[in-house]
Every structure is written in structure tokens, then in C-alpha cells.
Amino acid sequence: MRSTRTKPERIVVEAAGHVGHVFASRRPAAVASAAPAVVLVHGIGVSHRYLQRLHRHLAASVDTYSIDLPGFAATPTPAHTLSVAEHATYILGALEQLGVLEFVFVGHSMGTQFAIEAALQQPHRIPHVVLMGPVVNDERRTVAQQALSLGRDCLFFESPSSNALVLTDYLRCGLVWYLKNLRLMLNYRIEDRIRGVTSPILVVRGEHDPVATANWCHRLAARAADARCLEIEGTGHVVQHNRAVEVAQTILAFAGVGAPGSAAEEYTS
């Protein structure tokens, strides 16, 4: 699998009364396949920027879309804080406007919550769900515990480039909007909501991720109708940036396109 250097097209999309940005890499009709598109959605406070490496590698094989949700990055801030379900409704509506009717949903961190809600709202459109570094660990649901885990991750397990992307996006997001969404993230019970998802689920984590621990990911997958876990060696929470090639290979193999990467190891505990 070779990455593509073609810059994605930035599209402003209004859906469900809110405005976000979609970054689209669509393959020419002559080389397009029947495989569903892959959609990448960021977590709290950040943007599509820390998904760019993964986007580029995926776009070499399938149509790929990354989304900046309303209120994040350079998108307009909604009049009220959107619920997890409202974020999912925006994503589904925006992609429908672009003609993306079936897709593999790949969410990172809080983006995994949006993935679950979208799969519950319109399961016929989402044949596969990928949860990268899912939150929130039901044994670490307080602000202090989350801050400690994220701090450990930034200090010990992230690259300088991933830290720079995340921190500058946090500054763009702003403290007020971040805290409003943090409350939503902490209150969302992904461990309960995942039970209703019928599509196959792949839970991906970095080997050293203190936010999405191995125990938590295993317990979360066990609650789903059809789920398995994969661990990527030598990285932390922002696994898709620091190990983009391995994560892309894993996603494509899970979706039935390409072969699994050698760095991905299935685990059972």
C-alpha cells in the first residue's frame, strides 16, 4: 500500500442545522473499487490534522473522508453544545449530502462515541466500525483521572509532532468549548451503547496507551455483539499519527481491502 500526496478537497457542509468541514480524497472513476469509503472522525478538542497521515495512506486504496466537526478547528461554533447523538446526526447528514451512503466509520478517542451513535442511528450505512483509543474507561471517569492519563501519554508515549498537533488544536478549540464537550464525553456510557451495535467492531489501541488501557478495551469489546481488539506496538493514545501505516493496513484488512499489517497484534486480555 502506497500513500498518496494528493491534497484532500476541503468542503464546507451544513447539515442538521450546523456547519462543519469535510476533507475528501476521492479516487478517479477509472480506478475506483466497490469497497465502501472510510470516514475518519477526531476526538475532543482536536481536528482532522492528527488524522492526516492515516487519511493519506488510506486514500491510496479507498475513498477517504476526514471531518472537522461543528465547533472544532476553523468551523463555526454552534449556539448550543451538541450531544453525542447530534454529532452523529451531523456526520451522517453531511456524508449523505456528499453521496457517501455506505462507509467504514473510524473514530478516535471521543470520536469513538460518535461512531457508536452513528452506527445505532443508521446501521445499514455502516458495515464496519473502528474504535481507536475508545473513551471513557468506566473505571477512570473523573476529570482528574482523565487528565492524569492524558498527561502521562503526552509526556512518555507521544512523538513531538503528535503533541504539537494536539496542543495547538486545543488552543484553537478554546477552554470553554473544550470543557462543555468534556462533560458530554465523561457522561457518555459507551460500554452500554455498544451493546446495540450490530456491525462488526474493531477496537484499536496503542501498546502504551494509558487512556484506553488493554483491560478497558477488552472489556468494551466483550460487550459488543461482534468485536475484537488489535494492539499496535510501540505507541500511545494518538496511534493513528505515530503508526499510520500499521493502522491503515489494519483498517483495510478489517474492511476486506488489503492485508493486515505485521505490527498489529491481536490480544485477548
Rank of each mutant, 00 (worst) to 15 (best):
H55R: 04
R56C: 01
H57K: 09
A59D: 04
A59T: 03
S61Y: 00
S61T: 05
V62K: 06
D63T: 07
Y65C: 03
I67Y: 03
D68Q: 06
D68M: 06
L69D: 01
P70Y: 01
G71V: 01
F72E: 00
A73S: 15
A74G: 01
T75G: 06
T75V: 07
P76D: 08
P76C: 06
P76Y: 09
T77M: 10
P78F: 03
A79T: 14
H80G: 02
T81D: 13
T81V: 15
T81P: 05
L82W: 01
S83L: 07
S83W: 04
V84T: 15
A85I: 11
A85L: 13
A85H: 12
H87C: 12
H87I: 01
T89E: 15
T89H: 10
T89Q: 14
T89F: 00
Y90G: 10
I91L: 15
I91F: 01
G93T: 11
A94Y: 12
E96M: 01
Q97P: 00
Q97V: 03
Q97D: 10
Q97K: 15
L98I: 07
G99W: 03
V100C: 15
F103M: 06
F103V: 05
V104R: 04
F105K: 02
V106W: 09
V106N: 09
V106L: 09
V106R: 03
G107F: 07
H108A: 11
H108C: 06
S109V: 12
G111L: 10
G111R: 04
G111V: 10
T112G: 10
Q113F: 11
F114C: 02
A115E: 10
E117T: 08
E117A: 15
E117V: 08
A118E: 12
A118K: 11
A119M: 12
A119S: 15
A119R: 12
A119G: 14
L120F: 02
L120N: 14
Q121F: 09
Q122V: 13
P123L: 12
H124P: 00
H124V: 05
H124G: 12
R125T: 11
R125S: 14
I126Y: 09
P127Q: 08
P127D: 07
H128P: 00
H128Q: 14
V129E: 02
L131W: 01
M132A: 13
G133Y: 08
G133N: 06
P134W: 08
P134E: 04
P134N: 05
P134C: 04
P134R: 05
P134H: 07
V135K: 02
V136Y: 08
N137L: 01
N137S: 09
D138K: 09
E139C: 02
E139P: 00
R140P: 00
R141M: 11
R141Q: 13
R141D: 13
Q145I: 02
Q145Y: 02
Q146P: 00
Q146E: 13
Q146C: 02
A147W: 06
A147D: 14
S149Y: 05
S149I: 00
S149V: 02
S149L: 10
S149H: 08
